[in-house]
């Protein structure tokens, strides 16, 4: 029943990248010196693990924060949950999932260390399960840790919290950060690389790559080869990323999930025919079609009445629009203007 269903079904297009092994760009690894080189992994104390994360300069790819600060400041309390985020719900992107799948032991070791610091009652790995266009089946366990499959329609990132007990705390940590933590503990290796999905119909050899942080986008595209001349190059996810003009000047960071080169962009939006598909797609049940019109006219007072502040910017409305209108971009822009106007006090 479409009365209650929110969100959209996306063609995931993960296939060649997810099952292929990760391509590692050759670079020199950096190592750090620590004060406790001879202690076995089981006997590491809480402070020592945090020190390891600090020395290795690990950045959590799910939110861009330093892992050591996150581990130090988080207090889960009683009955807390540790969630390992490997939910790649955007099409093409599979960098976190492939990290989990191709290096399960290392990720499991990282989770074990993380558990020692946070001492949660429950730990699980969250993965997106609705990937229909592949024969690949999601593993039931990563090491000893259960994989909770996050189902449902597109904006699934917010649903990682659905398996936690009521009224208890939870913390989300990225899967690739766990991998780097394990490397730091085993080999005292610094985090100098990041996992990135290179995909799109203009890419000759689409796959997941591990490249040093700060590699330019052009170099990464050269690594995978170009099929034809791309018209759009996107940095980030396929639903929320931004298109870039100068691939030789743009560099990747730990939070970059993917680079997508498309041979053809979207041209010539036609006028809105008011089919109301955007209203149905919205995961927050906003009246998107009306909001777009209000945003175009700049009627901010009415937009507040329509709860524009609740928009999460997932882009589902633009995806379903048969007229190819940039619905989400219009509303997000108006939202920013609204915030500015509120600061200035004109609204």
């Amino acid at each position: 029943m479409s009365f209650f269903v929110r969100g959209i079904i996306l063609e995931q297009k993960k296939e060649p990248m997810l099952t292929r092994s990760t391509l590692v760009m050759r670079h020199e690894y950096e190592y750090f010196d620590c004060d406790f080189p001879d202690i076995a992994l089981d006997e590491l104390s809480r402070e020592q693990i945090i020190e390891l994360a600090r020395l290795a300069e690990i950045v959590d790819e799910s939110d861009g924060k330093l892992l050591c600060e996150k581990l130090e400041k988080t207090d889960l309390g009683e009955g807390g949950t540790l969630i390992i985020d490997a939910v790649d719900d955007e099409p093409y992107i599979s960098s976190q999932m492939s990290g989990c799948i191709h290096h399960p032991e290392k990720v499991a070791l990282g989770i074990e260390l993380c558990e020692k610091v946070l001492s949660p009652e429950k730990t699980y790995v969250a993965m997106y399960k609705h990937i229909f266009d592949t024969n690949f089946s999601i593993p039931k366990k990563i090491g000893n840790y259960k994989v909770e499959k996050i189902g449902g329609r597109y904006p699934a990132e917010g649903r990682v919290y659905r398996h936690i007990p009521k009224g208890k705390n939870a913390v989300v940590v990225g899967a690739c950060a766990m991998l780097h933590l394990a490397r730091a503990a085993e080999d005292s290796r610094k985090m100098t690389s990041c996992f990135i999905t290179v995909a799109g119909d203009a890419i000759l050899n689409p796959r997941n790559v591990e490249v040093p942080v700060g590699t330019s986008v052009e170099r990464i595209i050269q690594l995978c080869g170009l099929n034809e001349k791309p018209e759009v190059i996107i940095m980030g996810g396929s639903m929320t990323g931004r298109s870039i003009f100068e691939p030789e000047n743009e560099v990747v960071g730990p939070t970059t999930r993917g680079i997508i080169a498309l041979s053809r962009g979207y041209h010539n939006p036609s006028p809105c025919i008011g089919c109301g598909r955007c209203d149905h797609a919205c995961p927050k049940a906003l009246s998107v079609s009306t909001m777009r019109k209000l945003a175009e006219f700049g009627d901010f007072e009415k937009l507040t009445r329509y709860d524009a502040a609740l928009c999460i910017g997932c882009g589902a409305c633009s995806y379903v629009c048969p007229s190819r209108i940039d619905v989400a971009a219009t509303i997000i822009k108006a939202k920013k203007q609204m915030e500015l106007a509120k600061k200035e006090g004109t609204l």
Binding site: L10, E11, K13, P91, Y92, K229, P230, E231, V232, I233, I234, S238, M239, T240, G241, R242, S243, I244, F245, P247, I260, L262, G265, Y266, S270, I273, G313, G315, A316, S318, Y319, V320, C321, P322, S323, R324, D326, A328, A329, I332
Partner: peptide, 16 residues
């Protein structure tokens, strides 16, 4: 040759 494009870079195949 690169062009600017707003956020969702994947679109439904159905059009008007």
């Amino acid at each position: 040759s690169l062009m600017f494009q707003n956020a969702p870079h994947v679109r439904q195949s159905e059009s008007v």
